[in-house]
Simulated scan of single mutants.
Amino acid sequence: MAEADWDSVTYIRKKQPKSGALRTQQALNSAQRQGIPIETEKKYAGGQNKQHSTSKNTAKLDRETEELHHQTVGLEVSKLIQQARQAKGFTQKELATKINEKQQIINEYEAGKAIPNNQIMSKLERTLGVRLRGKDKGQPIGGPKK
């Protein structure tokens, strides 16, 4: 056997401290003395409960505050929903159950307070068999397309 194998020495270096341990000034000074690389980074609003960017939707917010209200279902559409529901003999609760929504949503649509949602409008159109959007509002929906 060669003697070099027995004479070689392996030095095991001490593990670098975790990032949490490097937060104190004493730990930073110690790391600098040992020659451990230190990386510092200034974080925006660090330690505060703030979102990434507050200016994301400023244009949208400006438009909404100028208008001061959301567009709701028109009085014409709310009357159409109410008349079609009554013609079919449904209560608000029965209609809501048929389209898998809450009764409160049907109530808001009929009162003209709801913000229109295309999914809900299409469910109402199919269930009631009446068009609620477009040029031909109030017209019965034709049969299946050929």
Rank of each mutant, 00 (worst) to 15 (best):
G35D: 02
H52N: 14
R133G: 00
Q82W: 13
K113M: 00
T91M: 11
A31K: 07
L124V: 05
G138Y: 06
G20R: 06
K14S: 09
N118K: 06
T65W: 06
A84H: 10
T91R: 13
Y109A: 00
L61G: 04
D136A: 09
L68D: 14
L75R: 05
Y44H: 11
Q34I: 06
V73H: 00
P144K: 12
T65L: 09
G74N: 07
T58G: 00
A59S: 04
I105Y: 00
E64D: 06
Q48I: 06
Q51Y: 11
T97F: 06
I99R: 03
L124S: 03
V77I: 10
E41P: 03
A84L: 09
E41F: 15
P37E: 13
F90V: 00
K50F: 15
P116L: 01
R23Y: 05
Y109I: 02
I81A: 04
M121L: 15
Y44T: 11
D5N: 14
L80D: 02
Q119N: 11
H52G: 14
G46K: 13
T54A: 10
K102P: 00
G35H: 04
I141N: 06
E94M: 12
G46V: 13
N57E: 06
Q48G: 06
L132M: 03
G74L: 01
D136E: 13
Q119Y: 10
N100I: 04
I120M: 07
A31W: 07
D136W: 08
R85G: 07
T127E: 11
G35I: 12
E41G: 11
K145H: 08
K56I: 10
S30Q: 12
G138D: 09
L95C: 08
E39V: 15
T91I: 10
Q71R: 11
I12L: 08
S19F: 10
A2E: 15
N49F: 11
E110S: 02
Q34C: 03
Q32W: 05
L95S: 08
A111N: 10
N57G: 05
R23D: 08
N118E: 10
I38S: 09
S78R: 10
L28E: 07
N107R: 10
D136H: 14
K93G: 08
P144Y: 04
R23T: 12
Q103S: 07
E3C: 14
L75P: 04
K113E: 05
S122L: 09
A96S: 08
L128E: 07
I99M: 06
N29E: 07
M1R: 14
P144M: 01
G47R: 12
P144C: 00
K123T: 00
P144L: 01
Y44V: 14
T58Q: 04
D7K: 15
N118W: 02
V130K: 05
W6G: 14
I12N: 02
A4R: 15
Q83N: 15
Q32Y: 08
Q139V: 09
L22I: 08
T58E: 02
T24Y: 08
V130S: 01
D62N: 07
T10M: 03
L80R: 04
Q51A: 15
Q92R: 12
N107C: 09
M1H: 15
E76T: 12
I106T: 01
S8I: 10
I36H: 01
W6S: 13
V130W: 03
S55W: 03
K43Q: 12
G112P: 01
I12Y: 05
I99A: 05
Q26I: 12
H69F: 02
E125S: 09
I12E: 03
K18G: 10
A4D: 14
S53Y: 12
